[in-house]
Amino acid sequence: MTSVMQQMADALWIMVLGMVLVYLFLGMLILGLKLLASRFAPSAAPAAATGRAKAVPTQPNLDPKLVAVISAAIQQHRAREGRS
């Protein structure tokens, strides 16, 4: 009978130890995952992608001045060519 009691005490000890260790181990994994997410989470990547996507439509907005300058230059050039 005493040996059964001894075994039960051992089992109880393993139960407490086991649960603590499982929580500790998986808890460390959570920290690891947070670390991974802080470095490699895709939230940064789509932001950059949308930034680029926004940059594309803004280009035409910038363009009119440039277009005007370039077309003026071309006109001048053609006019000069036409003269000679």
């Binding site: 059964v4 649960m19 499982v22 929580y23 998986l26 959570i30 995952l33």
Partner: peptide, 24 residues
């Protein structure tokens, strides 16, 4: 959702409680 690891850990209580139960 790393927090769900805690749920995976909690469910292992079934194992350790049964260890005690088997000895009992």
């Amino acid at each position: 959702n790393p927090k769900t690891l805690l749920l995976g850990a909690a469910a292992q209580f079934g194992i350790f409680a049964t260890l005690f139960g088997a000895i009992a």
